[in-house]
């Protein structure tokens, strides 16, 4: 455990130039050096305007290290804009962004040294072979080169490094994008829609890789417009809508306290008022079969059902989609998120 921690921690600075001076200055020193582990990501009032269009309207977000954090929102909500600010590809109009305690603008090289990034619109040098491309990316972090780990990743994702990028399928390109981000064992992985184009088996493998990274003390920040993807791999999730963080939730807690959908078939007509329980709502009755929603846990409902003769019982864990639908039905702006979400799927 001790050895792992050391590897996870911020390695000594090896570069040169103005960044070195900045890192040494006491004001700019990342919090990690003062003992406490800094948040993986910390955004304070981040605003981004494109001309008169406001893309981000004051993002506040804190992502604790050592977890898989989902960043969920419809297309055009500001996910990619936020991520590209973290990598200093674009500059915020106002506010500050920090990654692993480093300022994303003033210490961007320090940030990028520690971050593995898969762009949403992944484009690589078409004429290069996959292996050449990985060599090229590796050359920027010579101290972190790990050929054995890279070979293992290529094997696990079944990608042939001798193939030219030009001839790779969408899925294989996505794999290459993930490998180049993972191979230097970054402290933080930033993945913009990482599994689009991957078949389910590979998605599983990718999920495992992300879980391993987290088990190793690293952090993952994963954007998606698909709730199912976030639900499958993430521990926490932030929802971004129209350039603002609409909610930050723990996925497990969210699921636990959220609605259950129960379908029960009784041996005879159910007694009236059986389901008159707090937080329980009958959706539909088909003869002896009743469809029920339980909003505050399932315990009271199960006990009520157990008083009758039961022929069949089915219960479904709701998807995050259902959960957020339930969450937002009270707030007027909320349905827009979900409608956009649906239309984004096509």
């Amino acid at each position: 455990m001790r050895g792992e921690r050391r590897e996870v921690g911020i390695p000594p600075y090896r570069g040169s130039g103005h960044d070195a001076r900045r890192t040494r200055s006491p004001i700019m020193r990342p919090m990690a050096m003062t003992g406490r582990q800094p948040p993986a990501i910390e955004l304070c009032s981040v605003v981004k305007d494109y001309g008169r269009t406001r893309a981000l309207a004051g993002i506040e977000l804190r992502v604790e290290p050592g977890r898989i954090f989902g960043f969920l929102g419809p297309n055009g909500a500001g996910k990619t804009t936020t991520i590209r600010i973290l990598l200093d590809l674009i500059r915020p109009t106002a506010g500050t962004a920090r990654v692993l305690g480093f300022d994303c603008q003033r210490q961007s090289i320090e940030v990028r040294r520690r971050v593995g990034y898969v762009p949403g619109d992944l484009r690589m040098y078409e004429s290069m072979r996959a292996g050449e491309f990985l060599d090229f990316i590796d050359s920027f972090r010579p101290a972190r080169r790990d050929p054995a780990f890279r070979a293992a990743l290529l094997e696990r994702l079944a990608l042939d490094p001798a193939r030219r990028i030009r001839v790779l399928s969408k899925g294989n390109r996505q794999k290459l994008g993930l490998i180049q981000a993972l191979m230097h064992r970054p402290e933080l992985l930033v993945l913009d829609e990482p599994t689009s184009g991957l078949d389910p088996l590979v998605q599983e493998e990718v999920s495992r890789l992300l879980e391993e990274a987290v088990a190793d003390g690293r952090s993952v920040f994963l954007s998606s417009h698909a709730l199912s993807e976030v639900e499958r791999v993430c521990q926490s999730v932030a929802i971004i809508r129209q350039g603002e963080i609409a909610a930050v939730e723990d996925v497990a807690r969210l699921k636990a306290r959220s609605m259950h959908v129960v379908e029960v078939t009784f041996g005879g007509p159910p007694p009236p008022r059986l389901f008159d329980l707090p937080g329980v709502r009958v959706v539909r009755v088909d003869g002896n079969t009743v469809h029920v929603q339980a909003h505050d846990g399932i315990d009271a409902l199960v006990k009520a059902i157990a008083t009758q003769r039961v022929l069949d019982l089915r219960t479904e864990q709701p998807s995050l989609e259902d959960i957020f639908l339930a969450y937002y039905t009270e707030t007027p702006a909320a349905p827009a998120l979900l409608y956009e979400e649906r239309s984004a799927h096509g």
Binding site: G15, L87, E110, R112, Y117, D121, L122, Q180
Partner: peptide, 11 residues
């Protein structure tokens, strides 16, 4: 579109 990945490296 390749500039994104290039500039996301520590350079």
């Amino acid at each position: 579109g390749t500039l994104d990945l290039l500039l996301s490296q520590p350079v």
